[in-house]
């Protein structure tokens, strides 16, 4: 249990997503993913929006955004700013290789009916999960008590120079994408392969949706939808170059006590370059 809960999360947007994975899509969008030179910088935007990469709903809080360098060192966000519709920050890529920019969380969500028949949940919307809070707020027995193990991850990758593999290793907790094709080596008309894992094990049946940027400039979402195979693997052939928002969801009943259900949500942003 302790590892399950090792990262509580304060980010309001994530909790509201957990409660209501509806309409609003969260993303961290790099200005560029493939960089060269001695001292590259990259700017990233972080937001929750309705249309993909159009800042039309909420800024993402940056408190829980982390950056890991190719060698595994934590990198500081620079020039961080949170506006009404988006947050933005810069990264100075001092080491060559691939960086992971992410926000991730794991926790439990309890839902039950109170004695007077009211629907209850803990943590509430916008509330952070803590072990203590769970002990104090969730009854051990209640009508229709359901405890779900909930994980969320929102991430993207950028590479200075040649792509490296170190940051791609999964943490072993929650729903994660393990690249088979390097996430900063994606090209139009080529097929990329990714594996999804839940708590480190292949997440068979993960539902995956990829949507290209620029929804405002076309008439349909043109979503690419696929389901992970027994190994948790999916193949996606990118129809054209551009930035893509990829979202994956997974649920099963193999949760650790006291949870009875396990659910994971993953969002990645990937750049596909023209051949």
């Amino acid at each position: 249990m302790r590892t399950l809960m090792k990262r509580s999360f304060a980010a309001l947007f994530i909790l509201s997503l957990a409660a209501n994975s509806y309409a609003h899509r969260a993303w961290i969008l790099p200005g560029a993913t493939v960089l060269s030179g001695d001292d590259p910088w990259v700017t990233l935007d972080a937001a929750i929006s309705n249309d993909i990469f159009h800042t039309d709903y909420h800024a993402m809080r940056l408190d829980d955004v982390n950056v890991t360098s190719p060698k595994g060192v934590s990198v500081a966000l620079q020039n961080a700013h949170t506006g009404k519709y988006r947050s933005s920050f810069d990264l100075n890529l001092t080491e060559p290789g691939t960086y992971r920019i992410y926000t991730a969380s794991n926790g439990l969500l309890a839902q039950w009916l109170s004695d007077d028949g009211q629907r209850r949940r803990w943590p509430g919307r916008g509330e952070a999960y803590t072990d203590e809070g769970f002990q104090n707020n969730v009854p051990s027995e209640a009508s229709d008590l359901r405890v779900t193990q909930v994980s969320r991850r929102i991430e993207t990758f950028v590479t200075a120079g040649a792509p490296t593999e170190q940051v791609l290793a999964p943490s072993g907790s929650g729903l994660e994408l393990v690249p088979v094709t390097h996430p900063n080596d994606l090209f139009a008309d080529e097929t990329a392969e990714f594996q999804f894992v839940i708590d480190g094990e292949p997440a068979a049946g993960t539902q995956v949706v990829a949507i290209a940027a620029g929804m405002r400039y076309r008439n349909s979402q043109d979503a690419i939808e696929t389901t992970a195979d027994e190994q948790g693997k999916v193949s996606i052939t990118w129809p054209h170059a551009g930035m893509y928002w990829l979202s994956a969801t997974y649920t099963d009943e193999r949760a650790a006590e006291p949870a009875t259900q396990r659910s994971g949500a993953y969002t990645g942003v990937f750049e596909v370059l023209p051949l």
């Binding site: 309409a23 309705n50 249309d51 008439n219 349909s220 979402q221």
Partner: peptide
């Protein structure tokens, strides 16, 4: 017609 998280016609 335009639909939220859908298309337009």
């Amino acid at each position: 017609a335009a639909r939220e998280v859908g298309g337009r016609d």
